[in-house]
Design a binder for these strands. Structure first.
Length: 892
RNA sequence: GGGCGCAUAGCUCAGUUGGUCUAGAGCGUCUGGUUUACACCCAGUAGGUCGGGGGUUCGACUCCCUCUGCGCCCACCA
């Protein structure tokens, strides 16, 4: 016999091992079956699994298990991400802090530092692997992948080479976001803008007044720019020059007219610093102006600053203002000026725009063959979503996606980091060699930079499917490799990409870009975006505030994986954030335990009936011999199967979870099991439980698998490999479900009357049931009603003038008898009375229904049930209307 | 500045082409119960003018407008 409470700790690891060893996670490879593939978004190989991962794993595992049980050939590839910038900065920080190495790069050198990072990564990768397993993820570990694998390196290099050949990748001096702390460029998406209040200075600059928050950049300013239409400055001509006293003496300034200047802002004119501001850089490019570096890559002023050279910019600022003030050039200071400052999302350093020679991807060059046309990367990215090749859930994110692409600028793909895929370019005596392998001969120097992580990870869905052996054969082209890789041929494109909405631009968009370019296929068909997990107060869980963090592993230890999974899925809708807290998780732990105990009960019933569950063959019963409760149960189960299947197809995971929860608890346990305490049909009982357990398996894989062991039919395999139940329409028995309802209502009504009258539940009472109809039904259910409502004796009589419930309640006081009328429960007289109050409204209602039924599109789109429901409602409403009209006319 | 989301019971949330919503669930509250599936339980109770206002409609939590309050994303003007 099973223990009294479900013990996840004693179950989960054992079950997981059993699954993994059985090979159930591997795709069947059955050619006759449709494939279903998900590439697991690789967690960063830097640390611990957090709730974000847990949500992702739970969602994906539900999709995967459902499709596997549907009989598809299912593949879910796990992996980890080397995450160059994140990992390198974590390890460097660690070396500085824990090992006392002040400047790890210089002291250790490239090779040694990479070795250290590598060993750190290997350790945390194995941690993550075991944590992914803890979540019950049914992914194919034999195909586990890693973004630093040789295969991904090869495909990355191939893409680089090809893009370079088509001039989609180019090298150029452009303005970049420079992180002076990490000493690398970062992409636009890695910049975080922070609101700040800072003094806004206005200086006299020759005849002009110019405003700035950054006096320290102004040393090299020799251009003053204004809008060409600004009448105030009409007297000045484009390219006019003038002498002007400035920070370090007199300079010659040039007037530039450019539309980028907003005449409404400040004085309507400004000086520019092309080397350190994007807008200024663009102006300088347009007019072919000189650009000069003022601040070095450590954030210190350069020689041009004269006496200020070598100072940190934040220290120099005040002193420069002081000097200008002494010269009488400071006009005014606005201390409360609000503006935003660019900071790095890694480490928080203030980002200093710099001009640097970098590698770029041209997103506007029409160099991609797509659907028989030459398109730019931007156009392809737009096309695949617009045409519906890729669907984003929730849909509203498609708007965001398009907006982002519209504003997308060339993508800077080189990073001054060491950890990552090194740029496949070699230099020698001014020669440049771009290839997937180093050139022959001596003296070639490889580009020191690495590629942006997202460049490589953008190939994740397919680089993980190519045969790694082929990537070592350099006689093959990328196309050859793809053609000869069976996994790629069979499992790409993937079906769902499931990830958080926060990386839609970082990653989702880049995957679309990289994959369409290199393979001519979309990487995935559907993008399912989940929201962030927040604390009870709606705050972000952050590492800097450990008390706000919920560690999934602690939760698993305490409540079990199934409970954690349920609590994250129910109440979570795509694209929206959710709050998670312990009470909620405990609630689902209770649910898991409820299921456990219901199963125990079923097993006990079998035992006392002398039947072993294994002997039970579903469907062996004769329907006509079944009790009303059994018929109703089997019928509602068919509805459940339909609802769960349809809900999962439509990605309504929360709704399905709730449906399963309430069916199991409210219907199966509280009603059916209670109702059948007198007499049971073990066949029905066991097969119903099997269905419930099967339907719950994608959500609660562990407890269901464990229970399956006790209730499965003779010769059945593990639940993970069981086929998904199909709704059996022959068991649909609407009337049984409807018949049972009045019985349930009567019991509820009696219970509630008892409560009203303060009659203790252990005290048996005598009830006379007066009803206008359905006398036989209550006769047949007499025993059940008696035992469930604790009734001494139940007399049933039918009478057209049965008393109203309130009268019945009054008589209880005197006679300890409950008279009940079912009139109010079965008939919808109340509604008639309500509707009759306003004849017009009723007519409008019928008009509305008629209009709906006349609308072909409505009928087509609506579910059949809905139409039937509306029709029935229409009929009853019509007859009610007749009655109302009759009454009204008789009154007149 | 542009865009998006949210506002429903004390708390966390469902409510999918407007009509079984007379607005539901879980947790919490309160009342009562429990020798044998389960106190990680059972039965019941209280609690909401569905953020405010306006509109469309026979009918609005649901659609439109507007206001208020929270949150997010993108862009950025010196």
């Amino acid at each position: 016999m099973l223990p009294k409470a479900y013990d996840p700790k004693g179950t989960e690891d054992r079950i997981y091992k059993m699954w993994e060893e059985s090979g159930a996670f591997k795709p069947s490879g059955d050619e006759s079956k449709e494939t279903f593939t998900i590439s697991m978004p690789p967690p960063n190989a830097t640390g611990q699994l957090h709730l974000g991962h847990a949500v992702m794993l739970a969602l994906e595992d539900i999709f995967i298990r459902y499709e596997r049980m549907q009989g598809k050939d299912v593949l879910w590839i796990p992996g980890t991400d080397h995450a160059s910038i994140a990992t390198e900065s974590v390890v460097i920080r660690k070396l500085i802090k824990e090992d006392g190495i002040k400047n790890p790069r210089e002291e250790l050198g490239r090779e040694e530092l990479l070795k250290r990072i590598h060993s750190y990564v290997e350790e945390s990768r194995s941690t993550i692997r075991s944590q992914v397993r803890k979540m019950g993820s049914s992914c194919d570990w034999s195909r586990e992948n890693y973004t630093m694998n040789q295969a991904l390196q090869r495909t990355t290099y191939e893409a680089f080479k090809d893009m370079y050949g088509k001039e989609v990748i180019y090298r150029g001096h452009r303005i970049v976001n420079w992180d002076p702390k990490l000493h690398t460029t970062i992409s636009d998406d890695e910049v975080v803008w922070v609101d700040k209040t800072a003094p806004f200075y206005t200086f006299q600059y020759g005849p002009f007044q110019i405003g700035t928050v950054r006096p320290e950049t102004k040393f090299g300013d020799k251009y003053v720019v204004m809008h060409p239409d600004d009448k105030r400055y009409a007297q000045y001509k484009h390219r006019d020059t003038f002498e002007c006293e400035w920070i370090n003496g007199t300079i010659t300034a040039t007037i530039i007219k450019d539309e980028a200047v907003d005449p409404e802002f400040g004085t309507g004119c400004m000086t520019i610093t092309p080397w350190h501001t994007q807008t200024d850089f663009d102006i300088a490019q347009r007019h072919n102006l000189d650009k000069q570096q003022i601040i070095d890559f450590d954030g210190k002023l350069m020689d041009i600053a004269g006496e200020f050279a070598g100072m940190k910019i934040e220290d120099a600022r005040e002193k420069i203002v002081e000097k200008l003030d002494k010269k009488g050039l400071l006009v005014k200071v606005d201390e409360n000026y609000e503006h935003t400052t660019a900071t790095s999302s890694r480490g928080g350093a203030i980002v200093e725009p710099q001009v640097k020679e970098q590698w770029w991807i041209d997103v506007n060059k029409k160099a991609v063959d797509w659907k028989g046309k030459k398109m730019s990367l931007k156009e392809v990215m737009q096309d695949v979503v617009r045409s519906g090749d890729i669907k984003i859930i929730p849909e509203r994110f498609e708007k965001n996606y398009f907006y982002w692409i519209d504003n997308l600028r060339d993508w800077c793909i080189s990073r001054q980091l060491w950890w990552g895929h090194r740029i496949p370019v070699w230099y020698k005596d001014g020669e440049t060699h771009v290839d997937v392998r180093p050139p022959e001969g001596d003296g070639w120097e490889q580009d020191p930079d690495t590629l942006d992580t997202w460049f490589g990870v953008g190939q994740w869905t397919w680089s993980t499917l190519v045969d790694p052996k082929l990537t070592e054969d350099y006689s093959l082209s990328l196309q050859d490799i793809l053609d000869k890789s069976p996994d790629y041929q069979r499992y790409h494109p993937t079906q769902i990409l499931e990830t958080g909405y926060d990386i839609i631009f970082f990653w989702v968009a880049r995957m679309i870009l990289m994959t369409t370019y290199s393979t001519g296929q979309v990487p995935f068909e559907t993008v399912y975006l989940h929201g962030m997990v927040r604390t009870r107060d709606g705050k972000k869980m952050s590492k800097s505030h450990p008390e706000t963090m919920i560690d999934p592993l602690d939760i698993i230890e305490k409540y079990g994986t199934d409970a954690l999974r349920m609590s994250m899925i129910v109440g979570q809708s795509p694209g929206n954030d959710q709050k998670l807290y312990e009470e909620k998780i405990a609630g689902y732990r209770n649910f898991v335990n409820k299921l456990w105990n219901a199963s125990r009960f079923v097993l006990m019933q079998c035992e006392s009936a002398g039947v072993t569950p294994a002997e039970v063959e579903s469907g062996k019963w004769k329907v006509e011999n079944l009790s009303l409760a059994d018929k109703a149960l089997l019928s509602s189960l068919q509805d459940l199967i339909t609802d769960v299947s349809e809900g999962l197809e439509k990605y309504r995971l929360s709704e399905v979870g709730e449906r399963l929860y309430s069916f199991t608890w409210d219907y199966f346990c509280d009603w059916y099991l209670e109702l059948s305490k007198g007499e049971v049909n073990p066949d029905v009982l066991v097969s119903a439980l099997r269905t419930i357990v099967t339907l719950l398996h994608p959500y609660c894989p562990f407890v269901t698998e464990e229970l399956w062991e006790s209730i499965k039919p003779e010769g059945a395999e593990m639940l993970i490999s069981e086929p998904w139940p199909e709704s059996d329409t022959s068991l649909k028995d609407q009337s049984a479900q409807e018949e049972l309802q009045p019985v349930i209502d009567v019991i509820s009504a009696i219970r509630s009357l008892r409560a009203d009258q303060g009659i203790e539940t252990n005290k048996k009472i005598i009830v006379t049931l007066l009803t206008q109809t359905k006398g036989e039904l209550f006769e047949a259910q007499n025993e059940h009603i008696k035992s469930l409502a604790k009734i001494e004796s139940l007399t049933i009589a039918t009478h057209p003038d049965a008393p109203k419930p309130e009268n019945a309640a009054a008589s209880v006081l005197n006679n300890v008898e409950v008279y009940m009328s079912l009139e109010g429960l079965i008939d919808q007289e109340k509604e008639v009375v309500k509707l009759s109050a306003e004849k017009e409204k009723l007519e409008g209602f019928i008009k509305g229904i008629n209009a709906k039924l006349d609308n072909k599109k409505f009928v087509e789109n609506a579910k059949k049930e809905v139409v039937i429901l509306e029709k029935e409602k229409l009929e009853s409403a019509e007859s009610k209307l007749q009655k109302v009209i009759e009454r009204l006319t008789s009154l007149n």
